[in-house]
């Protein structure tokens, strides 16, 4: 029985590790400038956690194999070094891991959150609401008009609550249902929630950030690969949460400019 348990644990441990080693289900290819740092961090962690996982399971299995079965005559032996050895091992193993991952690993975090967006970053506002994202580009004047929540009227397609009649800055604002951005240009995303909590997640872009109702947060990133990707909501927001999404289109600068013109005409 005990030997069987030992073998089962080893089989489970190895079987669990195989899909990881073979990258059967891996993150999609990264399309951002900060992504490689995260990916590197991920594979370092995977290596360290994977080794700890396999080592712990296999040693557990070996000890079960070796010491199960009552041997009434035998004597109890103690692992060399006893508890002290265990504590020192934990401190060393985990301590270095904590240092390595905790300190060096913060570079990726810092590159997203501790550096301000560059002066040339293109501002885009994204508004999350039950259950769709809408985007706003400032138009030729480079200024976003003010929001008037009481004027929001989805039936009139006034998703943001813009008062185009009275606010000159709002007149040329361009509101769209998908996020198109030029490739290799830094984007400064201004995140606003209309109602409850939502989140902005693009796996390929290695970006995830919650919307905070009542508090606008901002995020910046640069996409490096032309293509069409999905933006999904990852903060439970109600019955349509699973269907709350939009598309991210990364375009060449020329394509982007003509797309923007086309959208301006549709307003």
């Amino acid at each position: 029985m005990a030997k069987f348990l030992a073998v089962t644990i080893v089989i489970i441990a190895i079987a669990s590790a195989v899909p990881i080693l073979r990258h059967t289900w891996a993150p999609p290819q990264d399309i951002s400038t900060h992504g490689p740092l995260i990916d590197e961090q991920m594979s370092d962690t995977m290596a360290e956690a994977g080794i700890s996982f396999l080592a712990a399971q296999i040693i557990l299995a070996i000890f079960i194999w070796m010491f199960a079965g009552a041997r009434p005559e035998g004597k109890i032996k103690t692992f060399p070094g006893g508890a002290k050895a265990m504590v020192i091992a934990s401190l060393l193993l985990v301590g270095t891991e904590v240092l390595a991952l905790g300190i060096f690993g913060q570079r990726a975090w810092a590159s997203v959150y501790f550096t301000p967006p560059g002066p040339n970053a293109m501002p885009v506002q994204v508004q999350a609401g039950q259950f769709a994202f809408y985007f706003r580009y400032p138009g030729a004047d480079g200024k976003f008009g003010p929001l008037h929540p009481e004027q929001i009227n989805e039936g009139n397609q006034n998703f943001f609550g813009l008062d185009t009649a009275n606010d000159p800055d709002s007149k040329d604002d361009i509101v769209t249902a998908e996020l198109a951005i030029p490739v290799n240009r830094e984007i400064h995303l201004l995140m606003h929630s209309k109602d409850v909590g939502h989140s902005f997640y693009v796996p390929e872009l290695r970006v995830q950030q919650d919307f905070v109702p009542g508090l606008d947060v901002s995020l910046h990133f640069t996409a490096t690969k032309v293509g069409k990707y999905e933006i999904v909501c990852t903060q439970l927001c109600g019955l349509g949460h699973y269907n709350m999404k939009a598309y991210l289109e990364v375009m060449s600068p020329d394509d982007f400019n003509s797309w923007l013109k086309q959208q301006a005409a549709l307003q």
Partner: peptide, 12 residues
């Protein structure tokens, strides 16, 4: 009575 769909906010 106004009727809307929250999943597709334009539906009205």
């Amino acid at each position: 009575v106004p009727v809307k769909c929250n999943i597709h906010p334009w539906m009205h």
